[in-house]
Design a protein around this nucleic acid. Sequence first.
DNA 1: GTATTTGCAAACAATTTGCAGATAT
DNA 2: ATATCTGCAAATTGTTTGCAAATAC
Lengths: 125, 125
Amino acid sequence: MNTRNTIQKQVILNAVRELKNHPTSEEIYNYIKPNFPSISLGTVYRNLNILSENNEIQKISVIDEAIRFDHLPEDHYHFKCTKCKKLVDLDMEYDTSLDKKVAEKYNLNIIKHNIVFDGICEDCK
Amino acid sequence: MNTRNTIQKQVILNAVRELKNHPTSEEIYNYIKPNFPSISLGTVYRNLNILSENNEIQKISVIDEAIRFDHLPEDHYHFKCTKCKKLVDLDMEYDTSLDKKVAEKYNLNIIKHNIVFDGICEDCK
DNA sequence: GTATTTGCAAACAATTTGCAGATAT
DNA sequence: ATATCTGCAAATTGTTTGCAAATAC
């Protein structure tokens, strides 16, 4: 947590926030590069990991794709179009009762849950 | 779908079923190797992809880990221990009303959803 | 008989890492 | 002043692929 506030880190966090829709590390790098040509891909990877460990952004893993990053730090659900592969944040209430239910039924300490809906988006219908 | 029934494919499917707890490709390869020394890792990867395309097994992607394989072909929920990284099938009903709710609210064709609960398992408490 | 699959090795893609110099505190 | 971070390149990890020989149908 002893993490310094470098220009690179700020630029990377801004990029994730500006791109919004779950970019990969590579996409973030390409977005930044024109305005900050000296930045290196390694630095992007390192900072994305730090930012997600510090819960400023979230990592999302998608089957057969590179890791994606979500600018929203709080828990929420996602929709993924199986055709165009687009990933979308869903604006619906996080259901804490699910965590409680599973915790009781299986005697586990539940921290949170994630839901990903698969289907076809409006554009691909 | 024009897929031949080779010994390798049978052995690989059996391995996933016997290992049960969501092995990686590498783990499946290592499990098979002693009894079938000529098998190659490439063949394991190829067949795991074919088997999951044919819905005989499922792919699961876990953050910061290799793809894992689930011997259960039908939809179900998972628990992941954030300490020991163990992934567990949860025996609870699949909630189709969630799919309906999202489909209506966002005007999407929903095929299915996945839920992964994060927390600490009994062994790690 | 022939199209698919295999084993092998090389290629590829995504991510991490070691290091010497630069920078934040 | 010094511990952390950067850029760079090389290394590592997970996975795919091209090819000639083997095999399923």
